[in-house]
Amino acid sequence: MKDFISGRAYVVGDSIDTDQIIPAKNLVYSMSDPEERKHYGRQALSAIPSEGQGLPYGNIPFTAEGKHESEYTILIAGSNFGCGSSREHAPFSLLVAGIEAVVAESYARIFYRNSVDAGFLVPLESRVRLVDKIRTGDELEIDLSVSTLKNVTTGEEYLLNPLGDVAEILRAGNVFEYARQAGLIPD
């Protein structure tokens, strides 16, 4: 995990469930095969209704037609992000598309756990609702050492909730590396 994450924002609304993040019909693809895994990036966020894709404008595809990598690095979301069926493919698909951090008002807990455990991305909580303040395409900078998010485009800065103890797992890379370092898994 990097302490400093920067890039362009992609903004979505409330209660984006795991079926909107990666529709269940895509789960047949391998997560490890270098070609097949790209499918997850291509389909990430594809089931969000088009008016909700890339707020406040809408109709902005997360990944360009045929591309598995997105031009956006930071996902801004409302409350209850990642609700619905538990599947690690959801944060994985965002990772493949190039998302390094999600900043949401709140998370469904299994999405949060899956993100941390596998080290797919950094799930951050905002203290205020950012969906109405940040626009898709804005340049953002996250500084995890002081838990701030700066909107370079508008000059505004927001406080985030500190990651707390889960930062140790993310720094180790994933929960298995963390357990190795803690001596729970022999090398």
Binding site: E88, N114, D117, N174, F176, A179, I185
Partner: peptide, 21 residues
């Protein structure tokens, strides 16, 4: 009793540990 994901399940089976918030 609470729901867990695949990585959680693997870690529990291997080490008997889980992290909780």
């Amino acid at each position: 009793s609470a729901g867990i994901g695949n990585s959680d399940a693997a870690l529990i089976m291997g080490t008997g540990k889980i992290w909780v918030r």
